[in-house]
Structures are given as structure tokens and as C-alpha cells.
Nucleic acid binder design. Structure first.
Length: 761
DNA sequence: GAGCGATTAATTTTT
DNA sequence: TTAATCGCTC
């Protein structure tokens, strides 16, 4: 047996050595899915299949890179570079460029990101004189995106009665017109948005049978990763490409389908067996990642979903720790709790920073964790959020480069014609836009031969001078010239504010990355094209600059659950388990939405290898004001036998000082571990200057039933000492008492459900 | 046309 | 809370 096949379990082996015909691999979380895919590719190649004949599609650049690397490793040679491994979007972009002119696009078409697309929609809504509150760009784009992902073009959109009645119901009668105008504008600009890369690919294959035939005969074997996340367009393209040989291998897990908002339909994986005859089905149910406790919890949680392919994940790993559940008063306390727990684990169990991940539902939740980590000097990295390429200064710079390569691109032209400010205002710009539309030409063509406006003319000359360098200079030299002569770099350099400095550095980083691009030999082994056009093609589908170097940096990782999919960490905190937050209030309307949220929770749980925390806060700041949330229903789906409940009944008014919650938690946790008690004491001493001295509870301290508490009573609090109840407010199931603890602590509002209070009299 | 306050609107996830 | 947009003045 070849050594690359060693260590595969039985179903894995079956999946790897299956040669021809459709195969579906249902791969549970942590079941070695990537290993199977990459070994399968290696196995095909070891058995005579040419790398050029294998197509493997993933959803993320990272997954594609990892696959490529692992195939290469398994093979022990560099043949893997000839594989077609990439994201749907990047592979299709590449194929589309080859035949773009057939569809009326230049082969160097621009790829618009979501912001670009919204900008165009905004303009259209304005031109059509519609209310942009009602036709919000994000809403409109979502709707167009959904249409494209379902292979519905503007014409079909207009004719589809179901869609029309939906739009009529929401009083958006002009949607079809906007869609049409948007599609026209993109085409006129020589640009495709993300969805076009799928939609137009489909169009190319259906409209030109010769093109379809070409690829059908090129791709003998097709492998699809994360098949549960495919949408109708992707499904249809795969079906067409694989129709001749039907050597289609799909890998996925219906329990991890979390992208329906982007048009993914679990249906694709559920019905795969009906799509082809003799589908081989392999289930990978042995998990190699998590402890038994974690797997049991995950299985229990997901069993609350109705729609799923039957399977039961199991593991040979040790039982492991129970899942820690922590409830805190506020989001800030939640942040402190997590930072404390990380410190504690590091000391007690010698974990490194990089062993921890904090996973949340929304990016906005990162703040409290960032603050508490920073305060405790724990290095961290935030993933997601505004990516490098979305920053204004970067988009401006890239807009120049894109315009130079593709002058049809009105969007980018408008973006930078007055950046830095050169006296060409909106009035002027609108005039040209209108004139271009009227004369059925492009903005650029209109001004290219002289415009009668000196400022505009000089701008045109500048862009032309850049263009003249396209064929003689590499991407870096050209970009450097753009930065210099456009005034972009100078403008940022002159801005000496902190933000200005950051922007300047970002642009320098961009230039560095372009330089790196021009100096790195092509891995593809194809052309050594270091032109600007080539560079733009390479980065247009990159959402992040992160490189694998980051992997080993020793920092705590903060990210959304969505971006954590496919990753694993020894210790995971899943935070913000509150109704309306997780599950999100947006998902509560129907069963499907709720089940997807639950799958998201399932994904989050199964990221953890050894230890898992689930936390939530009773109240948190949202839009600047404090809101109360109930415990997430998902928490109740964790069987008690796997749970270790912690109550962090900590109240901290903003600005009341950092350490009250901290010391509370430390004492509680450290009491069990004598060696760490010292440290807790040390910390308490260190904080003494800024802190009230903690109250030592009476020896017989025992919390009384909160329902018994009445206004006027004297009570004892574990930390705050003795106080008088001066008022009780809030709802009956969540009463909040105002308690005057006297000079040391003053009046505190305490949630009676969570506070431990002893009635003194 | 530019720049500055002031108002106001928005928060789910992303290739 | 912050970020973007609005509208006013120069």
C-alpha cells in the first residue's frame, strides 16, 4: 500500500479509492474531510489521472490553498500545481476571462465587491428618483443577488409572478427596473460582481455548447468541498460540467449548512442521490477532533433540528471536561470573564494564547473582548470585520489601478476623479454621467479627447500617462507611479493624525504587497505575467491579506462563527448566547431560519477540541443603550449532565473600575487551586489602590430566595457587604433592586435572579 | 466646490 | 455606541 493511504479509517479509505461515478461523502465535523479530499486527489494522480483533468472547488481561498498544499505533500512532487483547485469564484473568473468577449465583456473585466455594487445601485435609485430609504442599496443588492444565485436574470425577474407579487407586497414595484439597470450598468462598465461570476459562467456554458464541451472534456474528475453551501447556480454549473463522465465527488455536512442567506440550499446535498444513478454514499462519522463531552453536546443540540441526513458523530477521544456555562451581568463582564478564564487556563493547564478562540454571532460583539484582553495584556487578533481591501484608502488606490486597466469602469472613475480633491465636484461629475448616458457612450470616452475643462483634462492626461506604462512597467512600478503622481500618497503623508498615519501605512503595505507580487515567481508555472492587470486579477477575489504565517503567531483569535467554520482550537468560547442575538432576531420568523442558527451553534461547538465555554450576558449595550436579553434557547438544549454552570453575578457600572468582576471570579475559581490563590491575592493587592476592599461574607452566608426580598429590608451581599433595599423595579420575572450599600459602594442596581443576597432583617 | 458641524440612521452572517 | 449623510456657510 502506498504510504499516503496509511492511517485512513474504513469509510475514509472507501471514499479515497472509489474511482469512477458519483460519490457523496457526508463528513461530520472533525471527521477528516480535508484529508479524504486531498488523499483522494493524490490517489487519482498516482493512478494515472493528469492533474490538468482534475477540478476541485472550494468556498474559501484558505481551503483551496490548504488542499493544494496537502496534495503536494501527499504526492511528494510539484505536479499538484497543475490542478484546478480554487474557489468557485476564482476558478470561474479564470474561465470567464478566456471567453468574456463572447458575453460582451472585456477579458480584463473588473470584479466588483459588495461595496462597489451597492454604490452602483445607490446611483441608479437616485437617477430613477426613488426613495433610497425604501430602496436601500443593501436590500436591493440582496434581492438581485438572490435572483442571480437562482439563475434568474432581469427578464425572468420581471416575468416571474411570484417575485413580482412579493415586490408589490413590499411596495417595491421598481425592483425589476433597478435590476435591469444594474445589470446594464455593470456590463457597460465592463465589470462583474461576485454573483455574476457564477451567473455568467452558467450563461457561458448554456449559450455556447462548444465552450461547455471543452470543459466537459477537460475536467475528468470534479470534487466539490462544502457541498451543502452550494446555491442553485453552482449546482447547475457542476451538473453541466460533470454531465459527460459523472465523476463527481461531493463532500459536505448538512448539519453545517450556514450560508442560506447567500443562496445556499441544503436541498442540493439532500437530493444528490436522486440526481445521479448509483451514487456511492460514504459517511464519515468518527470525529478525531473533540472530546466525548463536546461531541455529545453537539449531537444533542443538533437533534433538535427536524431536517437532516441521519448520522451520529462519535469519537474515541477521552471524555474530557464538562462544558462551562457562564452567565454574567453585562457584556463587559462577559469580556472580563473570558479574559480571566483564559489567564486561568494558561496558568493552570499551560495553554498558549493561540490555543484560544472567542467565537461570536456578530462582529459588533468583539468590542468587550478586545477591551478585556487588552487590559490583561493578552495578545489577540481580530479576524473579519473591515478587511484590508475594504478600507477607503486602499479602495481609492485600487480604483486608480482598475481604471487604468479598464477605462470603461465608470464606478471607479467617479470614485477617484476628485481624489485627492482637484476641484472636480459632483455637479461636474453628474453632468458627464448624464451626457454619457444620453449619447450612449462611456464617461471616459466623453472626456478622453478633451473636455473643455482644464481640471478634467489634466486628470485625463495623468490617467493616460499611467496607461502608457501598462505594457512596459510591472505592477509595482506602475502602482508606485500612480501613488506618486496622483497625489494620493502625498495627501496621506500630510495627514499627521493617528488615523492618517494608519492610512498612510496601509497604502505602503499595499505597495509592499504589490512589490512582493512582482518579485515572486508564478506558482502556476504558466505565464510570468507581472503586469498590473495580472495583479488585479489575483487580488480581486481576495477578501483578506492574511497569510499562513499568521497561523503560528501566538495570539488569541476572535472571529464570527461563520468565519470559524473549518477551523479548530483547543479551547473555545462561544459567547453571547442570548435570545435575539443568538439565535438572531432576524432568524426567528420561520423554522428554517431557526434551524440554521442551531446549525451555526453546532458549528461553534464542534470547533473545540478540549475545552468549551458557553457564555452570555443578562444585559448588553446595543446602539448605546442597555438592553436585556433572555438566555438563548440553545443553552437549554445542552443536557445538564455535560454542564458546569458558573454564575458570575457581577454588577459593574460603566466606569466603576475594572476589577470587581475580576476579583469575584478569581476568588471563586481559585479557591479550588491553592497554588493559584497566591496569585489571586497578589492581584487583589495590586488592585487595592483602585478598589474598595472586598467584604468578607459572614460565616453563615447563604443566599435567600430573591422572591422574599422587599423594599426596606437589610441584606448582605457577598462582595458589597450590608445594604438597604431602597426600591425594586423591573418585571416580576426579572426584578431589579436598588440597594444602598453605604459609603463604600453606594447604591447599586442588582438583578435579584442572579445576585446572592442574604436577608439580615 | 470645499469643509465643517449637526443630525440621524443602523447593526447577521461573506465568497 | 459609531459611521455616514445632510445641510449650512464660506
Amino acid at each position: 500500500m502506498q504510504n499516503y493511504l496509511e492511517g485512513l479509517n474504513e469509510p475514509q479509505m472507501t471514499a479515497v479509492v472509489h474511482r469512477d461515478g458519483p460519490i457523496m461523502i457526508i463528513a461530520g465535523a472533525g471527521s477528516g474531510k480535508t484529508k479524504v479530499l486531498t488523499t483522494r486527489i493524490a490517489h487519482l494522480m498516482k493512478n494515472g489521472v493528469d492533474a490538468f483533468n482534475i477540478l476541485a472547488l472550494t468556498f474559501t481561498n484558505k481551503a483551496a490553498a490548504e488542499m493544494k498544499e496537502r496534495v503536494e505533500k501527499a504526492l511528494g512532487n510539484s505536479e499538484a500545481r497543475n490542478l484546478y483547485i480554487g474557489t468557485f469564484h476564482s476558478i470561474f473568473a479564470r474561465l470567464l476571462r478566456a471567453d468574456a468577449t463572447k458575453l460582451g465583456y472585456p477579458s480584463n473585466f473588473t470584479i466588483y465587491d459588495t461595496d462597489d455594487a451597492k454604490g452602483i445601485i445607490k446611483d441608479i435609485v437616485k437617477i430613477m428618483n426613488l426613495d433610497d430609504k425604501h430602496y436601500k442599496p443593501s436590500f436591493v443588492l440582496n434581492r438581485i443577488s438572490a435572483a442571480k444565485n437562482s439563475l434568474i436574470g432581469p427578464e425572468e425577474y420581471r416575468k416571474d409572478s411570484a417575485i413580482q407579487s412579493e415586490d408589490a407586497k413590499s411596495q417595491r414595484h421598481k425592483m425589476a427596473d433597478i435590476y435591469q439597470a444594474y445589470a446594464n450598468q455593470c456590463m457597460k462598465n465592463g465589470a462583474m460582481d461576485f454573483d455574476d461570476l457564477l451567473f455568467k459562467m452558467h450563461q457561458l456554458l448554456t449559450t455556447f455548447p462548444d465552450v461547455l464541451a471543452k470543459y466537459q472534456h477537460r475536467f475528468h474528475y470534479i470534487l466539490i468541498d462544502e457541498y451543502q453551501d452550494t446555491n442553485a447556480a453552482q449546482y447547475s454549473i457542476i451538473k453541466m460540467l460533470g454531465a459527460v463522465r459523472e465523476n463527481i465527488c461531493v463532500v459536505g455536512d448538512d448539519a453545517q449548512s450556514i450560508y442560506s442567506f447567500r443562496g445556499a440550499t441544503v436541498q442540493n446535498i439532500l437530493q444528490f442521490q436522486d440526481d445521479y444513478d448509483d451514487v456511492k454514499v460514504v459517511k464519515l462519522e468518527q470525529n478525531y477532533r473533540c472530546t466525548q463531552n463536546i461531541i455529545n453536546v453537539a449531537n444533542n443540540v443538533i437533534s433538535n433540528n427536524q431536517k437532516q441526513i441521519p448520522k451520529e458523530l462519535w469519537t474515541d477521544n477521552k471524555v474530557g471536561e464538562k462544558i462551562m456555562l457562564a452567565r454574567t451581568m453585562t457584556d463587559n463582564d462577559e469580556g472580563r470573564f473570558v479574559a480571566d478564564a483564559i489567564k486561568e487556563q494558561q496558568m493552570r493547564n499551560h495553554y498558549a494564547n493561540k490555543d484560544f478562540a472567542i467565537l461570536y454571532r456578530t462582529n459588533a460583539q468583539s468590542r468587550s473582548f478586545e477591551e478585556s484582553l487588552r487590559r490583561m495584556n493578552i495578545p489577540y487578533k481580530l479576524y473579519g470585520g473591515v478587511s484590508f481591501y475594504q478600507r477607503k484608502e486602499i479602495k481609492d488606490f485600487l480604483a486608480y489601478l482598475r481604471l487604468v486597466v479598464n477605462t470603461r469602469d465608470e464606478e471607479n472613475l467617479k470614485r477617484i476623479i476628485n481624489v485627492p480633491a482637484r476641484g472636480i465636484g459632483n455637479t461636474t461629475i453628474n453632468k458627464y454621467v448624464a451626457a454619457a448616458a444620453e449619447h450612449n457612450t462611456t464617461f471616459w470616452e466623453l472626456i478622453e479627447q478633451g473636455s473643455g475643462n482644464a481640471k478634467v483634462d489634466s486628470f485625463v492626461q495623468m490617467i493616460k500617462s499611467f496607461q502608457s506604462m501598462l505594457n512596459t512597467k510591472n505592477a509595482y512600478d506602475l502602482a508606485f507611479a500612480v501613488g506618486k503622481y496622483s497625489g494620493l500618497v502625498q495627501e496621506l503623508y500630510n495627514d499627521k493624525t493617528v488615523e492618517g498615519l494608519a492610512r498612510y501605512e496601509n497604502v505602503q503595505e499595499l505597495l509592499n504587497s504589490i512589490k512582493e507580487f512582482t518579485e515572486t515567481p508564478d506558482e502556476e508555472g504558466e505565464l510570468h505575467d507581472k503586469s498590473l492587470g495580472s495583479y488585479l486579477q489575483q487580488i480581486s477575489l481576495q477578501t483578506d491579506v492574511e497569510n499562513d504565517k499568521d497561523e503560528n503567531v501566538d495570539v488569541v483569535k476572535l472571529m464570527t462563527i461563520h468565519s470559524a467554520k473549518g477551523l479548530e482550537f483547543p479551547c473555545v468560547f462561544v459567547v453571547g448566547l442570548e435570545e435575539t442575538l443568538f439565535p438572531s432576531s432576524m432568524s426567528l420568523y420561520d423554522r428554517e431560519g431557526l434551524e440554521e442558527e442551531r446549525r451555526l451553534f453546532y458549528v461553534a461547538i464542534t470547533r473545540a477540541k478540549e475545552r468549551l465555554w458557553v457564555t452570555y450576558a443578562n444585559s448588553r449595550y446595543r446602539f448605546g443603550s442597555l438592553v436585556q436579553n433572555d438566555e438563548s434557547r440553545f443553552v437549554q438544549e445542552i443536557p445538564l449532565m455535560y454542564l458546569d454552570r458558573t454564575f458570575s453575578g457581577v454588577s459593574n457600572k460603566p466606569g466603576a473600575g475594572p476589577a470587581k468582576g475580576v476579583s469575584g471570579m478569581l476568588n471563586q475559581n481559585f479557591d479550588k487551586v491553592p497554588s493559584l490563590k497566591k496569585l489571586a491575592d497578589k492581584l487583589a493587592t495590586a488592585n487595592a489602590a483602585t478598589q474598595q476592599k472586598p467584604h468578607t461574607p459572614s460565616a453563615d452566608f447563604a443566599a435567600d430566595d430573591p422572591a422574599e426580598l422587599k423594599v426596606g429590608m437589610k441584606v448582605e451581599h457577598q462582595k458589597f457587604g450590608f445594604g438597604n433595599i431602597t426600591g425594586i423595579e423591573g418585571s416580576s420575572n426579572n426584578p431589579i433592586a436598588s440597594i444602598d450599600f453605604g459609603a463604600g459602594h453606594g447604591v447599586k442596581k442588582i438583578m435579584l435572579n442572579y445576585a446572592k443576597l442574604k436577608i439580615v432583617q
